[in-house]
Design a protein around this nucleic acid. Structure first.
Lengths: 301, 301
DNA sequence: TATTATCCATCGATTTTACTGATGGCAACT
DNA sequence: AGTTGCCATCAGTAAAATCGATGGATAATA
């Protein structure tokens, strides 16, 4: 008994078997299946050879199943049913009635933007599953998209033209100050920033690079007292008066009201974009989700 | 969505799908399946076209399933399992480990001979099912055999050469007399028979024809007072003194001890034979049963 | 008894499908 | 830039499914 038979029977043969069992004769089955009687005969002969058993007793009044034939018939029916289910499943996936949308993004966006959209989406299309894959930086999001692990990505840095992107929202880089820090006028100026000690994200973060670059344009070089790895930790360190920080607003939420929030002297934004693979052919659920995202984005821009 | 798609996917395609999902890439799957990479590629492309969905995301590091692909994979595994079961089933049927023996016979033989053989057989081969199809006369037994509704038939009249037959036992036609009937000597003679009223089987029975023919050879013509349709009824009518009868011994059993049993003046037997289709290729269980029947028949002859 | 009708197997021809080996494109490493 | 690993595509070939026609067998019918 080979575990992996090189050639094996086909679903067509099983379908024919069922038809014969149903209609009682090879010829009637052929009619119903809209194929020639000889094909039917051949198919069963091949199947019988492959299995090494006689499935039908042929007689004057048609064909009737042998005991083994009966057993095989039962399995054949089950297989046909599974086949049907496969078709049903993929057809569902091709409509808005089923399927799945897979999104990858960072935590801050997930929490403050996507959660709302997803709730709304699930309410509108309850049959469609939504999967979220949280990532730490753009890199991972991009590669998840490229490798097909997700359909839709949320990014905050421009991307090469493999992707179709559009703006979801502008997230302002805000300066967070402990309540103990004094501010002279109505807003911050660059001198203020030069004097504060800063708590920033750990080494090599793209956001911070952007902030440093922006400040340096105005001859402002921040003094970084602490490097920390999590958004929420940064915020709480600021709350405890250890220093100031510059961070995208959504990444900082929820901001305790003991913290003072200012725009930069010259405001800076990160552009949060939605990205999908340019050449990919998406199932309808993905389009539906993108539509919803687009209409939602109006509230943020 | 057509209920009966003209062309459909194949089990081979599903097997390939599973292999790719298992080994992570088209090429590795091709190696494992011992087929070319292009075949694998083609098979999946065809399957994807047939289903109308993308099943794999192809990337630098191999192929990974899409969400629909995952769903289809689950069904595919089930189908492979069913396929395996079919092979297991038919292979069992080809050995003594499984399968079925279908026997057709009359009630009398079933009760008094087969039941014992079957019990012994089931003890020896517990996995093999035994089916008994009871019939009223040879005609039905023969046609059941011819139509493949049974493998083994028990008959009591010679048959044409479509069948292989051999003797199972000789069943003597015995004369049953009520206790009230007087018998002169040690045995019956033809004159005795001429004087008794008889209870015989209803019209056109082959057994009775045989008996009448036998008697007429000795110028004995029975007076039939009753025609009755069931063996057991005949016996009980004799027991109640309504008449005598001539009946095969096994058909009469159990014979109440109020009834006198005699051989005919010139004994007559019916030859009970086992018959199988001459050209049929039987599964091993049938042969095993035939062997057992043969060895068993020694006790009766 | 001879005839007819029904069913299935078989044959040869044809179309379809499956498979292969070679080639090329693409993206990621070195 | 070159190399490597992966998949798609192409053209040719081998295998198969399918068909129409034919023939044999067996019941039912005349």
């Amino acid at each position: 008994m080979k575990p992996n038979p090189k050639s094996s029977f086909t679903l067509t043969q099983l379908r024919i078997l069922i038809a014969i069992a149903t209609y009682g004769s090879f010829s009637e089955a052929a009619l119903q299946l809209e194929m020639s009687q000889s094909s039917v005969s051949n198919a069963i002969a091949t199947l019988e050879t492959e299995l090494g058993v006689i499935l039908f007793v042929r007689g004057r009044q048609g064909a009737s199943l042998t005991p083994v034939g009966e057993q095989v018939l039962a399995y054949a029916r089950q297989m046909m049913q599974l086949q049907e289910e496969i078709y049903k499943t993929v057809n569902l996936a091709k409509t808005l009635q089923g399927g799945q949308v897979r999104i990858t993004s960072f935590r801050s966006i997930t929490t403050h933007v996507l959660s709302g959209v997803i709730a709304q989406f699930r309410q509108r299309f309850p049959q469609i599953g939504v999967t979220i894959l949280e990532q730490w930086d753009n890199q991972h999001i991009v590669s998840a998209l490229r490798q097909g692990q997700a359909d839709i990505g949320i990014i905050d840095h421009p991307l090469d033209d493999q992707f179709d992107t559009w703006e979801l929202l502008q997230d302002e880089y805000v300066v967070l100050l402990p309540s103990s820090f004094q501010v002279k006028g109505t807003g911050l100026d660059w001198d203020d920033l030069r004097n504060y000690p800063f708590v920033m994200f750990s080494e090599g973060d793209q956001h911070d690079e952007e902030v440093f670059a922006h400040c340096s344009v105005f001859d402002t070089f921040l003094k970084v007292a602490y490097w920390v790895k999590a958004d929420s930790s940064i915020v709480s360190m600021v709350a405890q008066g250890l220093g100031a920080t510059i961070i995208p607003r959504l990444a900082a939420e929820p901001i305790p009201n003991t913290i003072q929030v200012f725009s930069l002297p010259v405001p800076l934004f990160r552009m949060v974009q939605v990205a999908v693979l340019a050449d990919a052919l998406f199932p309808p659920p993905v389009f539906a989700f993108l539509e919803m995202l687009k209409s939602e984005s109006r509230f943020y821009i």
